[in-house]
């Protein structure tokens, strides 16, 4: 009977979506453990206290910006500059917000705030990969929250371990290298058009050439360059298609 119901209307479809998101994102956790430990230590050194370090991880929930914020404070920069610098690092998340927004027509205000609260690189990319393959289209938020349930608690706990114990993992494990590897694995299904591939190539080149820019501004530049290159490729392809059609007549 359940097989006949349209678009996954089984009562436990929501739980399946949550569970799928949870297990897909759980395997991303080891990648950020070395960085989370460092973030916890740095926050205490910047004067936030162990309690503040945990609060920062729990509520800001944005590793690179936490690191920039605490570095600036520790180096004696004015507080406002330190906060603004941390926020500049997070500007790329605005693109994630813009990518998700058009799909939230039927959502409540509370649901939209949940989407925003847990929007980080890993949850966003996993959800885009899910969207790409058309899975759990009836319950995207459940999938996304499952992902957040896997990512957020270990992030907070590992920051706390860094803050209270100051522990670190052996550098030889190179666990942090699983960050680029997991992003590669999540990205591959995206490269479905020439415009996407061109955007990735341009973005990768920009990332390397502009690596020296402060506050990860190279990422913002790469994002603009990638979008422009992608749109240009779109235009070229549709122009060629139009020409071919015209010559066939």
């Amino acid at each position: 009977m359940s097989a006949a119901s349209p678009s996954g209307a089984r009562p436990d479809a929501k739980r399946d979506a949550f569970r799928a998101g949870f297990f897909e994102c759980l395997m991303l956790v080891p990648s950020y453990i070395p960085f989370a430990l460092v973030c916890g230590v740095a926050a205490v050194q910047a004067g936030m206290g162990q309690l503040g370090a945990v609060a920062l991880a729990a509520f800001a929930f944005a590793g690179s910006s936490q690191a920039v914020l605490t570095q600036f404070i520790a180096s004696g920069a004015p507080l406002a500059i330190a906060i603004l610098s941390g926020l500049v690092v997070n500007l790329r998340i605005m693109v994630y917000s813009a990518a998700i927004a058009p799909r939230l027509a039927n959502s409540t205000r509370k649901e939209r705030m949940l989407w925003a609260a847990f929007l980080v690189d890993q949850t966003f990319l996993s959800n885009e990969a899910r969207h790409q393959r058309g899975a759990f289209t009836a319950h995207p938020l459940a999938f996304f929250l499952g992902c957040a349930a896997a990512i957020w608690p270990p992030w907070v706990i590992t920051n706390a371990v860094g803050a209270f114990v100051g522990a670190q993992l052996p550098a030889s494990w190179q666990l942090e290298f699983t960050i680029p590897l997991s992003f590669i694995a999540l990205m591959i299904p995206f490269l479905q058009s020439r415009a996407h591939v061109s955007s990735a190539l341009a973005g990768g080149a920009a990332g390397v050439l502009l690596f020296a820019l402060p506050l990860k501004l190279g990422l913002i530049a790469a994002c603009l360059i990638g979008a422009c290159v992608g749109l240009l490729v779109d235009t070229l392809i549709s122009a060629r298609a139009a020409r071919q059609k015209a010559s066939e007549r």
């Binding site: 790329r92 690189d121 999540l186 995206f190 415009a195 990768g204 990638g226 979008a227």
Partner: peptide, 10 residues
Amino acid sequence: LAVPAIFAAI
């Protein structure tokens, strides 16, 4: 289209 560029740049 910006999404692949950002992650490639990371």
